[in-house]
Simulated scan of single mutants.
Amino acid sequence: MKNRDVIVTGLQFPEGPAFTSDGTLWCVEQEGASLFWLKPDGTSGRVHVGIGSRPNGLHIDDRDRLWFCDSGLHAIRCINYPGQEPETIVDHMADEPLNWPNDLIFDPEGNLIFTCPGSPDDDEPGSVCVCSPVGEVKKISEKLFYPNGLAFLPNGRTLLVAETHRKRIWAGRWDAVGLNWINPTVWAETGPDGFGPDGLTLGPDNLLYAAIYGGSCLQVYKPTGVLSHTIELPGENPTNCAFDPTGRLGLVVTESEKGQVIRIEM
Rank of each mutant, 00 (worst) to 15 (best):
G149E: 08
R157W: 00
S71F: 00
K139H: 07
L160W: 01
Y81H: 14
L73K: 14
T158P: 08
Q84V: 08
W100A: 07
H74F: 15
C78E: 10
L112V: 05
L150A: 05
R77A: 10
V90T: 02
L112K: 06
E136V: 13
Q84K: 10
T88W: 06
E136W: 06
N56P: 05
D70N: 05
I140N: 04
K138I: 06
S53E: 03
E124T: 14
Y146R: 07
V137G: 04
C116N: 10
P120D: 04
G156Q: 06
G149K: 09
I105E: 00
D95K: 15
P154K: 15
M93Q: 12
P117D: 11
V137L: 12
S127F: 13
S71H: 04
I89G: 12
P147F: 14
P97F: 09
I89E: 13
P97N: 02
L153I: 08
L66F: 07
M93D: 14
A162D: 06
P117S: 04
E124A: 08
I140F: 00
V137P: 13
V137A: 10
F152A: 04
I89M: 15
E85I: 14
C78L: 02
K143Q: 09
A75V: 02
V134Y: 04
P55C: 01
P154I: 04
V161H: 05
D61W: 08
D121P: 00
D91Y: 00
C131A: 11
S132P: 11
I105R: 06
N99Q: 10
Y81L: 13
L159F: 10
I105K: 06
P101D: 01
N148C: 03
T158K: 05
E136N: 06
I76T: 09
S141M: 02
E142K: 06
M93T: 09
A75F: 01
D121R: 03
R65Y: 04
A151K: 10
P133D: 14
E109T: 15
D64Q: 00
S127R: 14
L159S: 08
P97K: 15
R65W: 08
D64E: 13
G118S: 02
I89P: 06
G57D: 01
T158D: 08
R65V: 00
E124Y: 09
S132K: 00
F68M: 12
G118A: 12
H92M: 08
E85A: 12
L150F: 00
F145C: 12
L144H: 00
T88A: 13
N155S: 07
I60P: 03
K138C: 10
Q84M: 06
S127T: 15
N99F: 09
R54P: 05
T88E: 05
S132M: 05
F145Q: 12
N56S: 10
W100I: 14
L66D: 01
D91K: 12
D64V: 14
